[in-house]
Amino acid sequence: MTNATGEPAVTRLYARLVVSDAARAIDFYRDALGAEETERYTGPDGTIVHAMLRLGGAAIAVKDADPADPAPTSLGGSPVIMALDVSDADAVAEAMVRDGATVVYPVADQHYGQRGGRLADPFGHLWMISQTIEDLTPEQIQARTNESFT
């Protein structure tokens, strides 16, 4: 497949989350975020080498850590933040905490028209949970951002 200019086209993009216990992580993402597991492949020892989950219109993959792919918990954390837009940020954050996540930044109204916060799941991955509470133009967001830094 190629794009309009004849160059190779991107056909899919998804995050691949490496965790220390993929089966438990899949349960967490299902229970806390409503994820649906669509495929799973295991190695001879039962470790999950690839599982695909659907979260609304998005997809993520989950796999058990191994020597080639370490989990964030073995690296002191992850610099990547998964941004998840939801219809009720408070309810999703509550479900995540109930299932073992910790609050990094509590859910609150933000200057850029979102209600949201940041949580760390039990496997070392960071999630920014947000919902739109105001429809703002890019100019309005920039003006509010400028004000928030003064």
Results as ranks from 00 to 15, higher is better:
102 T>F: 08
12 R>G: 11
97 V>R: 07
111 H>T: 12
16 R>H: 09
31 D>Y: 03
117 G>M: 10
34 G>A: 11
6 G>D: 03
132 T>N: 01
64 D>G: 08
123 F>C: 05
143 A>M: 01
131 Q>M: 08
89 A>K: 00
45 D>V: 15
104 V>G: 08
99 D>T: 12
13 L>E: 00
59 A>Q: 15
83 A>M: 13
109 D>M: 06
68 A>T: 05
133 I>V: 09
28 F>M: 06
76 G>W: 10
134 E>A: 08
87 S>F: 13
87 S>P: 04
7 E>T: 09
39 E>D: 08
64 D>I: 07
41 Y>R: 09
48 I>S: 05
42 T>L: 11
45 D>R: 10
13 L>V: 12
84 L>V: 12
135 D>S: 05
69 D>P: 04
91 A>V: 13
117 G>P: 06
36 E>R: 14
24 R>P: 02
93 A>M: 13
126 L>S: 02
69 D>Q: 09
57 G>M: 09
62 V>R: 12
55 L>T: 07
76 G>S: 11
67 P>N: 13
87 S>L: 14
41 Y>D: 02
138 P>V: 04
65 A>Y: 03
45 D>Q: 08
97 V>Q: 09
54 R>W: 10
56 G>C: 15
62 V>I: 14
135 D>Q: 06
115 R>D: 13
7 E>A: 06
15 A>H: 01
92 V>F: 03
124 G>I: 01
131 Q>R: 05
93 A>N: 11
11 T>G: 06
17 L>C: 02
21 D>W: 04
104 V>S: 10
48 I>T: 11
118 R>Q: 13
65 A>S: 14
65 A>V: 03
3 N>G: 11
82 M>G: 05
4 A>W: 00
90 D>Q: 14
58 A>R: 02
50 H>D: 12
5 T>S: 12
52 M>N: 14
119 L>D: 08
64 D>Y: 15
102 T>N: 05
130 S>T: 03
85 D>K: 13
56 G>Q: 10
134 E>V: 05
39 E>K: 05
